[in-house]
Amino acid sequence: MIPTKRIKFQDLQAVNGRFEPQLSQRILEVVHSGQYVVGEQIRQFENEFSAFIGTSHTIGLSNGTNALELILRAYLEMGRIQKNDEILLPANTFIATFLAIVNQGLVPVPIDPEIPSFLPTAGALEKKITSKTKAMVMVHLYGRTAYSKGIASLLESQGMLLIEDNAQAVGSRFERRKTGNLGHAAAHSFFPTKNLGALGDAGAVTTNDPELASIIRALRHYGRTGKHCYTYAGTNYRMAEIQAAALRVKLPYLDQDNIRRMALANNYLSNISHPDILLPTPENQDFHHTWHLFTVLTKKRKLLASYLDQQGIETAVHYATPPHRQLALRKGMSPGALPVTEKIHRETLSLPLYPTLSDDNIRHIITSINNW
């Protein structure tokens, strides 16, 4: 039986409605305070988010892409990397990861991942390392922990930086440590659809490196290091007070929401049994995923998406065209053959998964897929 209401791919109205009236009250406090940029809400959020991730420093920023850009820019200022150095990253990530690298005058080197983990291996990374390779941007894609001891050991042996793109995985863990506290620095996104979503664009950097944190704090505010003193040619990547206020309301509930996401994902994993659908690998005792997205692979993506739409179920594609095939990135990059990435982008389909999705809706989605 098809539900009378369509099952949205993402229902932000329902997700955010759970935080009322506290959310509106906190926003009104900001409005009445007269302090709208880099004020008390941001300072409090930075402290609370550092405690959540387990790092010494959080720097609130305007969005996740800016966060990754400022990490790279700060390492350029510190002399840890130079213009035209190579940065490893998974080939199947969102284009924003590539753009952050390119926009700092660095060269992205995409690595083909494995299926069904959607993540690259240490062996695949090692084959791409040259004398110009200075860092890896490790993307915890779809909320899946991408860290491994093999990758960490390889990077350390080569003297390379490990930078995390934690835009989709806030709250994920490797063993007992949270993503965002596994490498030298991490970029976070709080775009409204994320597991911890603001009411607009927002992001952050987390790190245990005081020098890096100090430079990023300066860079986000025009390069300012003191009153009327501008040490760096910085920019304006500051987080808004209202966004920090909203994030402070929602952060205490993040673990609870992630547990709900895990339950929904496990329901999918245990009960979807269609022979034409490949499911992602589940988590294990070392890898704790937070399932920002639940993606499946099927060679009949258009047919499945159309069928589910007829059943009142919205789906999405993340992402239709791989970054290395985007016109913006074709110049100056020779990625070589990336057959697994091509397959993923050709066949991936994302199913609804968010904390307010009901058990009845999940059952309808599973039954519909199995009857396809």
Rank of each mutant, 00 (worst) to 15 (best):
M239I: 07
T225A: 00
N271P: 00
R224F: 04
C229K: 07
I272P: 15
Q285N: 13
L254S: 07
Y237F: 12
H228F: 12
Y232E: 01
Q285P: 00
A244E: 12
I259A: 13
A265C: 04
E283H: 08
A245E: 06
A240T: 06
N271Q: 12
H228T: 12
P280W: 06
L269Y: 12
M262C: 12
A245V: 08
N267C: 09
V249T: 08
A265V: 07
R248D: 08
K250T: 02
G226E: 11
L269K: 04
N258I: 01
S273C: 11
S273Y: 02
R238V: 12
P280F: 00
Y222P: 01
L264C: 06
N258F: 00
A240M: 13
M262G: 15
K227C: 06
A233R: 14
Y222L: 02
A263R: 14
M239T: 07
P275R: 12
N284R: 07
A265I: 02
I272H: 08
A265E: 11
P275C: 09
S270E: 14
R238H: 05
L279C: 06
R260Q: 14
H274I: 06
L251Q: 02
D255C: 02
P282Q: 07
L254G: 01
N258A: 02
I277E: 11
A263H: 13
P252W: 07
L251C: 04
M262D: 12
D255H: 06
D276N: 13
R224L: 05
I259Q: 13
N236V: 09
Y237T: 07
A244V: 03
R261W: 07
H228G: 01
G223H: 07
Q285R: 12
M239G: 08
G223A: 03
A240K: 13
R224V: 07
D255L: 09
G234V: 05
N236H: 08
C229D: 11
Y230L: 10
D255K: 14
R224I: 06
I272A: 06
T235W: 09
L279S: 06
I277S: 04
S273R: 15
P282R: 04
A246L: 03
N271S: 11
E241Y: 08
Y268F: 10
R248A: 09
L279K: 15
R261L: 13
L254C: 10
G226S: 13
N236Q: 06
G234W: 00
E283M: 14
Y253E: 15
Y237W: 08
G223F: 02
R260D: 03
L264M: 10
D257H: 08
T281F: 00
A265K: 10
Q243T: 05
Y253L: 00
E283C: 08
I242C: 02
T231G: 00
Y230I: 02
M262I: 10
T225P: 04
G223E: 09
A265Q: 03
R260F: 02
T235E: 05
Y268C: 07
T281K: 14
L247S: 02
S270W: 01
K227W: 08
D255G: 02
Y268H: 10
L264A: 12
A244T: 06
P275S: 11
V249A: 02
V249E: 01
D257P: 03
N271D: 12
A244C: 13
Q285T: 13
L247R: 06
G223P: 03
A246W: 04
A245T: 05
A240P: 03
Y253S: 11
I272D: 05
T235A: 02
I259W: 06
S270R: 14
